[in-house]
């Protein structure tokens, strides 16, 4: 397996995630795009672990850790989104402009 293939797939996936984060309005869709970017990083970690034959398996172990952190991030993120929805009745990012108390 040439290392270029997984690296290029991961780079494309990451750019798609970047587009989603920048172009979407709905907060949940932005969270999905962040997941895409995290998955691109995971693919890179696995591919380089396989290439370098690391004795400690750091690539794959870090992939597992990233998956755990992504799960935690989605949980907290959705809780925040729900709290915002409860107070403002909207989760469109460009409508959440003010930082202070309304």
């Amino acid at each position: 397996m040439h290392v270029v293939y997984p690296a290029v797939v991961a780079a494309l996936l990451f750019s798609v995630g970047v587009y989603g984060v920048l172009a979407r309005r709905n907060t949940i869709l932005v969270l999905m795009s962040v997941e895409l970017m995290l998955n691109a990083v995971n693919l890179n970690l696995v591919a380089f672990d396989v290439w370098l034959r690391d004795v400690l398996h750091s690539g794959q172990v870090l992939t597992l850790f990233v998956i755990v952190i992504a799960a935690a991030e989605v949980g907290i993120g959705l809780a925040i989104v729900l709290a915002v929805f409860r107070t403002r009745k909207a989760i469109e990012l460009d409508r959440l402009r003010e930082l202070g108390e309304p």
Binding site: V9, L12, L13, V16, G17, Y19, G20, A23, R24, L29, M32, S33, L36
Partner: peptide, 8 residues
């Protein structure tokens, strides 16, 4: 990559 494009 294709389904990721559809996601966004």
């Amino acid at each position: 990559v294709g389904s990721a494009l559809l996601v966004v």
